[in-house]
Write a protein that binds this DNA or RNA. Structure first.
Lengths: 216, 216
DNA sequence: AGACTTACCGACATCGTTGACGGTTTCTAC
DNA sequence: GTAGAAACCGTCAACGATGTCGGTAAGTCT
């Protein structure tokens, strides 16, 4: 079974010990969400994956709900950092639409987004979790919109651009949701994205074109 | 607490008793998925909602997994019937694109689709469930494509049409996924769909237009 | 160095969930 | 009607998960 490897021996300050332990546990929580889903995420499994004791966990997180809530923020931080790291080369691309769509796809990719979906679905029947998730979601959306604005120019009147961004984001998420249900068909989902991308290019070209009523 | 109301007293044949009991249990299972999510769907809750005993449940379904598996098919059947019931007036509509998109939206609406998502996500970490879900998903997709074909004409060469349908379906699912995570913002999601629909119309118009390379 | 605080440990009690099973009722075949 | 099958009932045992809690180790202040 995989372990969250993080060693740093010798004398450490309380702050170091504390934050490293929290990080270890939260990383393990995310791993657990990916591997076993929300329902299969138990404190025992997390502790095993993190290679720590149950006592350590209960010391840092009063309850399981606490731990999961912290994991939400933890994931959000990682994803934000991921986006920022990829942003530079996106901004420098020749074709902003293509680069932007690729970025959007990349952000919704990989095991981290799987964990996000697990949390979203779990949040549906858990008000506390829901509040946290909703707050994060707001931030994410506004970040996406800010990026779009700087990619395509801040033409404040043109509401077609945020609209296209929303549609693109929704399409990406829809594909990923389907992928979650049927993970065996990876190539098919890749192809599905390529096709969707072609459609979304049309939408963006239309949105970026000089104002002209799209539906007369 | 809501009950699945189904009374039919007097002498009944074994077949009647059996199938009615199964239906009651499966309806309650779906209700449970909606109300409490997959993780919160326990045999005790199902039994309470159905107003039957635990013994009845274990008699008809050897295990909980059996019950859930049966619920998958049950949901699929209901949804298919729902689509067919709405199909007639969709086919008769003046604007096939508009009517088709509305149908797609309607099919992914309501508590039933919520249950579907719960099962999709649960299936990710449960191979048996995954197989069942994947099979159903295949059927659903082909049904959607068949309907699209009869709505927009069977121009076999024009791959842009199925592509547009996929994109539309993915966008719808993306919106619904977001809605699941943040159920308080219903109006916002409605608006999001209206905007997405505008974009999707563009995609469909482009797909239906006489062959003309969309990206030169 | 000594007092104090924080980090960490591991066992225990409790609770909810599931599957099994022996007994009862309802239907069906003859 | 009567035997047998199917449907249904409700309790029990086993298991896994969570939170609590008394105790130990590591660090921090004076």
């Amino acid at each position: 079974m995989a372990r969250v490897t993080t060693e740093m021996r010798g004398r450490r300050t309380q702050e170091q010990r504390s934050s490293e332990m929290r990080r270890r546990i939260l990383d393990a929580t995310v791993l657990c969400l990916q591997e076993y889903g929300y329902g299969g995420t138990t404190t025992v499994r997390v502790v095993e994956l993190a290679g720590v004791t149950r006592g350590a966990l209960t010391h840092h997180f009063a309850s399981k709900a606490d731990m999961v809530a912290a994991a939400v923020s933890h994931i959000a931080a990682i994803r934000t950092a991921d986006v920022l790291s990829k942003l530079e080369q996106t901004m420098a691309a020749d074709d902003p639409v293509d680069a932007g769509l690729d970025l959007l796809w990349a952000v919704h990719q990989g095991p981290l987004f799987v964990a996000v979906v697990e949390l979203w679905v779990a949040a549906r029947t858990d008000r506390d979790l829901q509040r946290r998730v909703a707050a994060i979601e707001r931030d994410t959306t506004s970040m996406v919109m800010d990026i779009a604005k700087s990619l395509f120019g801040a033409d404040a009147d043109n509401t077609a651009i945020p609209r296209a961004v929303y549609t693109a984001m929704d399409a990406v998420r829809g594909i990923q949701l389907t992928r979650i249900a049927t993970p065996d068909l990876t190539d098919e989902h890749e192809a599905r994205w390529r096709r969707a991308k072609a459609d979304l290019r049309i939408v963006f070209e239309n949105a970026l074109a000089p104002q002209r009523p799209p539906t007369p």
